[in-house]
Each structure stands twice: as structure tokens, then as C-alpha cells.
Design a protein around this nucleic acid. Structure first.
Length: 275
DNA sequence: CGCTCGATTGGCT
DNA sequence: GCCAATCGAGCGC
């Protein structure tokens, strides 16, 4: 069952982009060399961090209601750089820095599941208190993960993470949930570069729907470690929403410019981005 | 790189 | 029935 095709090889090389300029300051350079060996300069700790460091007597760094209780656009931007943590049943901690989000504004937003005030058992999480998860099943096989914000029926979709810890576990989770057992190892950049990829990598499924990020034992958000400087944020059109009238092209997707971990780059939007 | 297309099933207009 | 806030293979350039 070797499925070695020519296309697989031809796509191998030849990806050298010029948009890495800003990113290299903050994260590991991706495509410059065929096989980036020393991945992750700083935060290359193992899956499990020191227990002394991470949780000094039940006072872990965790973002609370005051963080989530802001309008969807503000929250979508505020998410960038923060670290999502998923603790598996066996204690393994998976960590990723959020690099891409989308805001869904509520009833008036024609691209939102809550458009027109629709409230159903499925999207109930969108209407719950800020910080509540809304996880839904899509395309017959995937999940997407949202966080409720301030505003009725408003939320933020998490679209991409920079994996920081537990990468091998993420790789296993991603690989095993794909059907074709081609055996080819996923690159780091394929682990969390998409809303359903990150759900696979973090083992987030429907059972996480309506959980509270401010109190849940298995998933939470930690404040961004202080960086050298604020990264530029690109505001672009949202992905995959089809035709939603005037809402189709509104700049409600946000990502860290130059980050190699983003799922979809929008060159046009980047031309309008202040640096 | 960039495009097209099939997979697969829960949730509803 | 029909559609869906996706993914990854396959193929052309």
C-alpha cells in the first residue's frame, strides 16, 4: 500500500516565502531549510512542565471572566498570543499559542450560526456566559472550537495555534484520526493550522461543548508570555463562510502577521496592515 | 504553489 | 433532503 506519487514529491521543495521577516523574531523559522532540525528556540520544554513552576499551590495562571467578557472583535484580537492548554486524562499537557481567530458577532452577522437570533440546542454555547465553549461537528467528520464572548450569540472561532508543548502527542492524535494510514509524519506546521486540525491535535470534541474555560480542569487559557514587542495583526475576511451578503468580506478574521502557523494567509489584507 | 474535488454525518428551514 | 465556520489527495504549472 505504498502510495508514493509524483505529486507528493513535486510539492516537497520550492516553498520559500518572503513574508517571514517579522515572524522570525518571535517564532521558529519554518521553511527556510528543507528540514528544520532545532525546532522551538525557547519554549522547548517537554510535554510535562515542572509542577513547581506551572501550578504553585492551586493558583495557576489562567485567564478569567474579565478577559472573556469583551465584545467579539476585541476578544478575537485579545486571544492572539495567549496560550491554550489542554490537559489529557493521563496528565499530559498540550500547549499552543493562538495565532489566528475569527469573530462572529451575533444575530446581525449573516455568517454566524446565531444569525437572525437562531438559537438551537447545538449553538446554545454561543449564548452562554463569556468564556463558554461552543464546539460543533462539521462536514461529517470534524469539530470546530469557539469561545463565547460578550454580546448575545457572539463568539470567537479559534483557527490556528503555534504548537508549544506536547507536539508528539499532537502528531499522534492528528495521525490516528486520519483514516489513510499512509504513515507519513505530519510536519509541525500541519498540527494546528486550521480550526479542525487544532481540535484533533488537542483532542477537543463534542464533549467539550458548553464547558467553561475559566474553570474546566482539562482546558484553559494562560496569559501570553511577555514578548519583545507587539506583533502586527492582520484583519482579513473570514474563511469558508460562503456568501453571507455584506458580511462575506468584512475583516473579522485576525492573525499574527508573518506567523508560519497561520492556516490561510491573505496577501491583500496584509497590504493594508500597519506595521 | 494553487486549484479542484470527494469524504461523511449531524442539524435543521 | 440539503447543507456545512474543513481537510487532504491529486494534478497542473
Amino acid at each position: 500500500m505504498p502510495v508514493r506519487s509524483g505529486a507528493q514529491l513535486s510539492r516537497k521543495l520550492g516553498q520559500k516565502k518572503q513574508r517571514l521577516s517579522e515572524a522570525e523574531r518571535h517564532q521558529s523559522p519554518p521553511g527556510g531549510t528543507p528540514t528544520p532540525s532545532p525546532q522551538e528556540p525557547r519554549l522547548a520544554l517537554g510535554p510535562q512542565r515542572s509542577i513547581y513552576f506551572s501550578s504553585p499551590r492551586g493558583a495557576p495562571a489562567r485567564l478569567g471572566l474579565d478577559f472573556f467578557d469583551q465584545p467579539a472583535v476585541a476578544l478575537a484580537r485579545a486571544f492572539l498570543g495567549q496560550v491554550l492548554v489542554r490537559r489529557l486524562d493521563d496528565g499530559t499537557e498540550l500547549r499552543g499559542r493562538i495565532v489566528e481567530t475569527e469573530a462572529y458577532l451575533g444575530p446581525e452577522d449573516e455568517a454566524a450560526h446565531s444569525r437572525g437570533g437562531r438559537q438551537t440546542p447545538r449553538n446554545r454555547g454561543m449564548f452562554m456566559k463569556p468564556g463558554t465553549l461552543y464546539v460543533y461537528f462539521i462536514y461529517g467528520m470534524y469539530f470546530c472550537m469557539n469561545v463565547s464572548s460578550q454580546g448575545d450569540g457572539a463568539c470567537v472561532l479559534l483557527r490556528a495555534l503555534e504548537p508549544l508543548g506536547g507536539l508528539e502527542t499532537m502528531r499522534q492524535l492528528r495521525t490516528s484520526s486520519r483514516k489513510g494510514s499512509t504513515g507519513r509524519a505530519l510536519k509541525d506546521r500541519e498540527l494546528c493550522s486550521g480550526p479542525s486540525k487544532l481540535c484533533q491535535a488537542l483532542a477537543i470534541d463534542k464533549s467539550f461543548d458548553q464547558r467553561d474555560l475559566t474553570t474546566d480542569e482539562a482546558v484553559w487559557l494562560e496569559p501570553s508570555p511577555p514578548g519583545p514587542r507587539e506583533p502586527a495583526v492582520v484583519a482579513a475576511a473570514r474563511v469558508g463562510i460562503g456568501n453571507a451578503g455584506e458580511w462575506t468580506h468584512k475583516p473579522l478574521r485576525f492573525y499574527i502577521q508573518g506567523s508560519p502557523w497561520v492556516s490561510v494567509v491573505d496577501r491583500g489584507a496584509e497590504r493594508n496592515t500597519q506595521v
